[in-house]
């Protein structure tokens, strides 16, 4: 909020600010996949390109509601029930629903403040076996704590491509983790990685369990890999920028500098040296 007031002060023009904000906020909100509370305890909705119906309308597939969003205020102002055209067929919904339930269970176990959604992004009208479709699992966890000078976010996007002919599910994941600490300084972590996997096309419930296990596996491994990257920092990675101690392993002999300069002086006078 203070950032916003600072921005207003710098621009010193309400109209310019509003115009810039109208353009910038939707882009930011979607790419950061912010999560907004829907009114009258309808749950949360994730603002993302996967759930976007129009620029201000986002589908919450779990509750089959459409959230009307104010991007600049970052709130959900209203909800309306989704139309039939906006929802997947009952065949797809069976897969989506089962996966959503498994992912919710996993997220509640692994992310203290995590939110998830499963959207169908391709082939949502398929009325039975015989066609391909694609589900997207979104997991986000965000912690904003400006009073402690730190913010952080975890974003996972898993695309699951259900290949009907080969009876294979191709799974692709993109994980992105950011953390920003800015008390008397300014340091940012920016980490991302991508994963690929596959499993067999089975019943909705078996698919859901299989996919959730794959996601859990990769995300757990990734977190462990981040820990390894951090643990390598002090003695390895960071050393390539600056060592903790000089190559001599003792502090620099500044007391000799006077001597060093005098010697050079003498050398110069005697016409020695360079």
């Amino acid at each position: 909020m203070r950032g916003r007031n600072h921005l207003k002060a710098v621009l010193s023009d309400e109209e310019v600010y509003n115009e810039a904000a109208m353009e910038a906020f939707p882009v930011y909100n979607k790419s950061h996949m912010i999560c907004l509370e829907m009114p009258s305890r309808a749950g949360d909705v994730i603002v993302s390109s996967y759930s976007e119906i129009t620029e201000n309308e986002y589908l919450d597939p779990r509750s089959a509601q459409v959230a009307i969003v104010d991007h600049v205020k970052q709130i959900c102002t209203k909800v309306r029930p989704a139309n039939d055209e906006e929802l997947p067929s009952s065949y797809i919904e069976e897969y989506r629903y089962a996966l959503d339930a498994e992912i919710q269970r996993y997220v509640s176990e692994s992310y203290p403040k995590g939110v998830s959604a499963v959207n169908c992004v391709k082939g949502k009208d398929a009325d039975g076996p015989g066609s391909d479709f694609e589900l997207v699992v979104i997991i986000t966890a965000m912690k904003l704590s400006p009073q402690n000078f730190c913010n952080g976010s975890w974003r996972s996007v898993w695309n699951i491509d259900f290949q009907d002919e080969s009876q294979v599910l191709n799974i692709k994941g993109k994980l992105q983790v950011g953390a920003h600490y800015f008390e008397e300084g300014n340091v940012e972590l920016d980490a991302k990685n991508e994963f690929q996997d596959s499993t067999i096309f089975q019943s909705a419930d078996d698919c859901a369990i299989g996919i959730a296990n794959i996601i859990r596996h990769h995300e757990t491994e990734y977190l462990a890999a981040l820990e390894v990257a951090y643990s390598k920092l002090p003695d390895n990675t960071f050393k390539d920028l600056r060592r903790k101690l000089p190559v001599t392993r003792t502090l620099f002999p500044w007391q000799n500098t006077l001597q060093f300069s005098l010697t050079r002086e003498v050398e110069k006078e005697l016409g020695l040296g360079k």
Partner: peptide, 13 residues
């Protein structure tokens, strides 16, 4: 601090 933040978002394995 950034490492702590990551562990807050998703506690260790």
């Amino acid at each position: 601090k950034t490492r702590e933040m990551v562990c807050t978002l998703r506690p260790p394995a």
